[in-house]
Design a protein around this nucleic acid. Structure first.
Ligand SMILES: [Mn+2]
Ligand SMILES: [Mn+2]
Ligand SMILES: [Mn+2]
Ligand SMILES: [Mn+2]
Lengths: 228, 228
DNA sequence: CTTTATTTTTAGATTTGTCTAAATTTGAAT
DNA sequence: ATTCAAATTTAGACAAATCTAAAAATAAAG
């Protein structure tokens, strides 16, 4: 049971990609796509990770994480998301800007650094995108919320996160002010196309397409049933 | 006048080493020593940096920085020392622990990150070791202080830094409480061997060898000439 | 001035991560 | 069953960074 050998930044990036995409396995092309490389390179790396016991790999059949691979991936994701919280909360970056920076910071190797960063940030459970931050013991907080398209009319809620990390989505939500922590009430659902109208306490209203609503995660408040 | 091409972590580490050691030139062995590698590897890297115009290199004659090499080195040192301040001030690391972590963090490439980190730390002028932090415009604050062995008896002062970064020195000073920001008065110099006795306002005294005194940088207060 | 010791550079090999192009395998469609 | 297209793997090459061992230049002694 020797301590897990240190991984390179590249290996860590591949592990995260396998974690994100494997259900329970993922093919070489999709993986290569995710880590911005070619399928042949992905095959190479997968074979090396398989020898280290981090992924289980069967030729032509795809790749998945082993238990120890899952542990390693969770550690990287923990670092990534803690840095994202730091960048957003302490340095004032927008949620659409933090990912690329965290992608580099996550590879700085030091358990003590992460312990102290975690404490400095008051042990957050979710990152600025609403994604759960694995705990130091490897367990995961439960998902941050439900999708806005599943909220009934009249319900008020706080924005908890976004369902994916594309720049288009994050920039849009940032621009219209639907960022984590803001408070809204769903005032209408247009039957024709599912468009949602939401409003702030101060009365500002905003229309969201059904597609957009499907990509916003929210935390509903206890329902103040309008009239009993 | 294209923007300076991005440098690898390794190139940045070599540049810092040349900056630290070249006065005005440094040999391959000393350089290799500093970056923990072999002379042959250092030669390779130097030749590549020379082609990029960052060092001036003459075979068998040693290597020094060009003006643009000095600019690049200052930028790396700025990042390194800002991260050191962050680690010490915000995360509570001791001054003897911050260097190795900063050695990694300094390579994260993002001008905006450094701008915001600098502001978050209130634009510090010195790092936890008392070394000056190059400003965003590339200029340098003046040195933090004078050596303790040059302070006269009766003089009070604040510890500003250490004259080198060896673990032995930093651990020792940390253990006896002579860390940056602490206040002392020099009460005696033993004529025989130059031992210094210093004391805190609360009366705690501490003896420092002449050797140790030579490695502590201090900021003297205006002299309260004991009796006019 | 020669010889010797030191420093520095080259030559050749290795590891990591990547690429293109060619060869295999798989799975789906006739 | 054949044929075909897509996915995947191999083969071979390359750049970055490193190493060891051998060659070359410089500096120091004699
Ligand atoms: Mn990354
Ligand atoms: Mn995130
Ligand atoms: Mn470094
Ligand atoms: Mn320092």
């Amino acid at each position: 049971m020797n301590a897990p050998a240190l991984l390179t930044s590249t290996e860590e990036n591949y592990l995260k990609a396998v974690f994100a995409l494997a259900q329970p396995r993922i093919g070489t092309n999709a993986l290569a796509d995710r880590v911005q490389t070619k399928a042949s390179s992905a095959t190479d790396m997968i074979q090396r990770l398989a020898e280290k016991g981090l992924v289980e790999y069967e030729r032509y059949r795809g790749v998945g994480l082993t238990p120890s691979g899952r542990v390693a991936a969770a550690a990287v994701i923990r670092r990534h998301r803690l840095w994202e919280v730091f960048l957003a909360e302490k340095l004032g970056f927008g949620w659409h800007e933090v990912h690329d920076l965290a992608e580099e910071l996550e590879h700085v190797q030091s358990p003590e650094l992460i312990r102290r960063l975690d404490a400095f940030l008051d042990t957050p459970s979710y990152d600025p995108h609403g994604d759960p931050i694995p705990r130091a013991d490897g367990t995961w907080p439960t998902a941050a919320g439900i999708r806005l398209d599943q909220v009934p009319v009249g319900q008020s809620f706080a924005v908890a996160g976004a369902a994916d990390r594309t720049d288009e989505l994050l920039d849009y939500l940032h621009r219209v002010g639907m960022v984590p922590g803001t408070e809204w009430t769903l005032s209408e659902i247009v039957p024709f196309d599912g468009t949602r109208t939401v409003q702030t306490r101060s009365g500002r209203t905003l229309d969201l397409s059904a597609l957009a609503a499907r990509h916003v995660l929210v935390q509903p408040h206890e329902s103040q049933t309008p009239n009993a």
